[in-house]
């Protein structure tokens, strides 16, 4: 079997670079479009978005409740309002941005992914999400509720 990926070791042409960058750029454009949509269509108005099915069925807040309103607030530069709606979601935004930047950098440098997040960190994230889900339904932690 020939190995076409080994045929060119001198770096890509312009066309190759453009297509390599296509996916990060596409993801960024999609995210910005979604942010623009949520920023312009107010989730606080009833009827604009469906109610969270988990909340509708159980009556409990899930870890994602309030995210649309938080994104709406973020789109309008209201960080405090966003944190009041869903602090955990707001905290993940810089993480996601960093992930995207690392992905873009890998695409530009044309290196494959070598590093993976240690497993314990994702288990810690799971514990954090579950604790957040429980806490925001407790009466003493109203600041976590959406």
């Amino acid at each position: 079997m020939t190995l076409p990926h080994l045929a060119d070791t001198t770096g890509g042409s312009g066309a190759g670079r453009a297509s390599v960058l296509a996916r990060p750029v596409l993801v960024a454009c999609s995210a910005l479009a979604a942010l623009a949509w949520v920023g312009s269509v107010d989730p606080s108005e009833p009827g604009h978005y469906p109610t969270c099915p988990f909340l509708a069925v159980t009556g409990w807040f899930c870890p994602g409740c309030g995210s649309l309103r938080a994104l709406h607030a973020l789109a309008h530069g209201d960080l405090r309002g966003a944190l009041a709606r869903n602090p955990l979601m707001v905290l993940t935004v810089p993480v996601l941005l960093g992930w995207w930047a690392a992905w873009l950098l890998r695409c530009v440098r044309r290196v494959p992914k070598r590093w993976v997040a240690p497993g314990w960190s994702i288990w810690a994230l799971l514990v954090l999400v579950l604790a957040f889900a429980v806490a925001r339904n407790l009466p003493g932690a109203a600041f976590l509720a959406p």
Binding site: L55, A117, P118, I122, L126, L130
Partner: peptide, 23 residues
């Protein structure tokens, strides 16, 4: 999990953690 409202995401986190732990 966080940007939508789907508890399915909890299971996704579990499997993501398994992937990296096992790797």
């Amino acid at each position: 999990t966080l940007f939508c409202c789907l508890p399915l995401g909890i299971a996704s986190i579990v499997f993501a953690a398994q992937v990296n732990s096992k790797w």
